[in-house]
Design a protein around this nucleic acid. Sequence first.
DNA 1: CAGAAATGTAAGCCCTCACTTACGGTAAGT
DNA 2: ACTTACCGTAAGTGAGGGCTTACATTTCTG
Lengths: 120, 120
Amino acid sequence: MAYGNSDHTGTAHPYATALEALADPTRRAIVERLSAAPAPVGVLAAGLPVSRPAVSQHLKVLGAAGLVISEPRGARRIYRLAPKGLAPLRDYLDTLWDDALAAFAAEAHRASASDWKDSS
Amino acid sequence: MAYGNSDHTGTAHPYATALEALADPTRRAIVERLSAAPAPVGVLAAGLPVSRPAVSQHLKVLGAAGLVISEPRGARRIYRLAPKGLAPLRDYLDTLWDDALAAFAAEAHRASASDWKDSS
DNA sequence: CAGAAATGTAAGCCCTCACTTACGGTAAGT
DNA sequence: ACTTACCGTAAGTGAGGGCTTACATTTCTG
């Protein structure tokens, strides 16, 4: 098991927080919008069916997940995607992918004697 | 009402369901376990801090997300990762990544003003 | 300096969802 | 056939989180 721990035994790894952050449709919409161009909170909220404070809260979550960074520009605050923010998540999925393929190959090569096989 | 159904971006695409499925720590643990080798429900539940029916429900969600497939083997039912299940999610993240990079490049190269930009 | 504009935060409501126990159904063993 | 094992589903409960309104703060503008 090359992965950390997905359960509750450990601190949240970057990929976990990113995954949980992107699970929300509104947050995905925000991220997709920011993937086109940076924007302040007000503009983001204007294009969404939720209130502006809701967007602020979502941005806070996205920031904690390392997916978004902000820069104060006068009274406004410009939000943009963190370029490397998706890297941990992508790596995690790649590892899952590779392990699954390896397991599939091993399964095809030898079709028995796993631990879950009947233990009579 | 708070827009009960969650989709601003259109009909629930596969990557969305996969994302929401993997957001749960228990389901991630199941997927990671299956990425090592196929297993029946009982074995999966034995390695998790939840009951067996809970695992069944999670597997149903993962199946609906296209991440897991099952094959009845005698009285048991063997679950394994769907090799192509992660593809839509990976593609989605790749697109997001590429768009963000393009936006960053455009930002650095920008000449014209966006609507929210301050004039100066 | 007063007013407006833009944002973050607090308090609270409500709905989703993960989990449990209880039950019904199918396949293997004796 | 009876019993045992394994599994999926139904019903109900509790905690988490997303949303809203109200408020405090900072900054630009006239």
